[in-house]
Amino acid sequence: MLFRSVSKLVYVGADRRPGVIGSKPIHLLKAEDMDRATDMDSLYVDIGARNKEDAEKLVKLGDQIVFATRCEPLGEGFLKGKAMDDRVGCYAIIEALKKQHDFDLVGAFTVQEEVGLRGAGVAAYRVKPDLALVLEGTTAHDLTETPEHGYSTVPGRGPAIVYRDASWVGDRRIVDRLIQTAEAAGVPYQIKRTVTGGTDAGRIGPTESGVPVAVMSMPCRYIHSPVSVICADDLNNYVKLAGLFLDSLDERGLPV
């Protein structure tokens, strides 16, 4: 989504060399290009080199580039930062792993979801889980002119339990357990409304003879942009509900 990224600060390569995404200044744009998003071919990363030779000493082809957005509190009870999708899920798993359970809990921090759910399938094949919960970040488009029925989730209303998306139908028994757990503990939650987008559930679910799997998502405004905004209460409740769900497996057994 680089077209929205003109003038953003980035880091290039493993040693995080700073750069700036540049493009033609507005003064030089043709009138008809003013209203158009800049396409990827018209953007470049300026790493402060004088020429190609200097640049090649600093970075090389294939170096990955990340946005340099800092994660900070924003306003009253919000956080802003890059990669909330899906480091919020990573955070919830780290918290969950601190507790001993009666079952084998395998936390899978998977690779390459954003390029086609690639890591989760091989991880699921290795783990062969009896049940899986995917912890995701999702869209939260509660702003602008979207009609309310088009909001996928709304920040501040708690973690979003996903009944199905484009990649998978959540196992109803797991979805119901998540809802029961949230209601019993008074943890706010919402049901994700739209069924667009895919998650790692789409690879875990069809593993071998099939794995019961459901998804819980964190509402993230401006997802897949250099900066996302999340609600701190949502994050706390997201981590809490994931933990309580795992506790329920100790107390009540697997729902599947």
Binding site: W168, V169, G205, P206, T207, E208, S209, G210
Partner: peptide, 16 residues
């Protein structure tokens, strides 16, 4: 199950 969503059920059934 779930053929209409992309041949999903047959895949796991066949594996089993």
């Amino acid at each position: 199950v779930q053929e209409e969503l992309g041949l999903r059920g047959a895949r796991t059934a066949a594996y089993g």
